[in-house]
Amino acid sequence: MTVFIIRRLMQTAVVLAVMSLLVFVGVFAIGDPTAILVSPDSDQIERDRAIAALGLDKPLWEQYLYFLYGAFRGDLGKSFVFNMPALQLIMQRLPATLELAFAALVIALVAGIPLGMYAGYRPESPVSKTIMAGSILGFSLPTFWVGLMMIMVFAVQLGWLPSTGRGQVGTIFGITTSLVTLDGLAHVLLPAVNLALLKLSLVCRLARAGMRENLLMDYVKFARAKGLSARRVVLVHVFKNILIPLVTVTGLELGNLIAFSVVTETVFAWPGMGKLIIDSINNLDRPVIVAYLLVTVSMFVFINLAVDILYSILDPRVRLAEAKG
């Protein structure tokens, strides 16, 4: 296990280095941030001074080495726009995004698994067919449109829920989050449901497929032959087997939820990382873009690691390989 984790961390370091290099070159190729940052009517001297202050006068490879040197000391550079450390900027926005992603994930799992399992257990019933039809909508309707519709119905016409921003925050276990106050919950509900919709459909379909597949297995028939109730067969025997693929996909999708909550955050003016990255790309704010991607990739790696470990707990046949990779 320890060897497994150490090897994984080393792989992570390589991935991060390669990715930062790609982003560095990529952003350099897109355009010159000084054209945006320095006001157009400033003269050449002023312009040169600004370029030198941002370190953009040096050749790209030197800039990259300078960045690496800083990164090893935990400094990912200063934002060109906000003039504050990029990492700090991201960390300020991270909790909002994390809590939105977390809320969306909980909604997707809590609603998706039972719905999917029911649809798989009674595939012919009208309720199941409705669920499956609904999941197709969940897949195919664009997130931003659903978000706008939700705002129109629940915020504008019915006036039940607020449409923008993050509500009041409270503190629990030293974590500041809006999930512990009523106002905060009211604010997070719409964006979380919006973000969850796609994942909910995915979880639902996976659970249904798993259910149908597992119900045909001999072990289910044997469990029934033992005289177990249908309830125990489904909720213990089948459920534990369905969880294995669900955990894998959930892990991957959690990363996606965090990284690509951009659309939902924009629609609901949610002050998270997604909105920050969009603004930064517009401004060619390279340190923030690089730092954002580093943080996101690290998160992906961490989630995948957690999934692998969880996998070995759920499925006794999987043992994390100590010897071979």
């Binding site: 297995m217 001999d218 072990y219 028939k221 044997f222 029934r224 032959a225 534990k240 759920l314």
Partner: peptide, 25 residues
């Protein structure tokens, strides 16, 4: 019927690799 199954009437299946649930002890 459930009360009889596994209690008064038991069944053994063909493929022992498939009849036990792989994720339960």
């Amino acid at each position: 019927m459930r009360a009889l199954r596994g209690s008064r009437i038991a069944m053994i299946f063909q493929d022992p690799m498939m009849t036990l649930n792989p994720v339960l002890r």
